[in-house]
């Protein structure tokens, strides 16, 4: 196995994801949201913002954790892109080997899950975006939040459709 395959071997990441998910399940069982908030206050950022904070609601907590696990998909899919690009540079035989491995149903399911998770991830990120913006952007007043979120979401849909068309050979 070449070093890139080793680095990009997402099975390692599947295992890591499984361990973290199991850890969450085991540590979360029987504990209240307050205890999670106390554990959360261990991080420097959380400590600074936790003064007087109330524990988040269960739905917000799930959403927050799901957003955090988006990092796993970002890293895994990036490593798979790296593996594919490395194989491209090695020639047609190496590319065919990678393509054959991607036909494994587990990879297909993983990619389908990654598509759904990352799409939700970026749309949630865009919903958070207005809160990070100043009242004025340069000389202009900042647009309403709905315009910012709607514009970014439309850009995501447009970029995804265009890239999908280019990669699948339907365009260009």
């Amino acid at each position: 196995m070449n070093p890139i395959d080793l680095l990009a071997n997402t099975w390692i990441w599947y295992a890591l994801f499984g361990v973290v998910a199991a850890l969450f399940f085991l540590r979360g069982r029987g504990r209240s949201l307050t205890s999670f908030a106390e554990r959360s206050s261990g991080s420097p950022g959380a400590r600074a913002s936790a003064v007087g904070a109330v524990p988040p609601g269960r739905e917000k907590l799930r959403s927050y954790l799901a957003f955090g696990f988006g990092g796993f998909f970002l890293m895994s899919v990036s490593l798979l892109v790296l593996r594919a690009v490395w194989a491209l540079g090695n020639g047609e035989a190496a590319w065919s080997r990678v393509q054959a491995s991607l036909q494994n149903p587990i990879y297909v399911i993983f990619h389908a899950l990654a598509f759904v998770w990352l799409s939700w991830f970026v749309l949630r990120l865009f919903r958070l975006f207005p809160a990070t913006q100043p009242r004025r952007i340069g000389p202009l007043r900042r647009p309403p939040d709905a315009v910012l979120v709607g514009g970014l979401s439309a850009a995501f849909v447009g970029v995804t459709l265009a890239l999908a068309a280019i990669l699948s050979g339907a365009l260009g």
Partner: peptide, 9 residues
Amino acid sequence: LPAWALVMG
């Protein structure tokens, strides 16, 4: 990455 995952994966 979502487009890559959808088309290539």
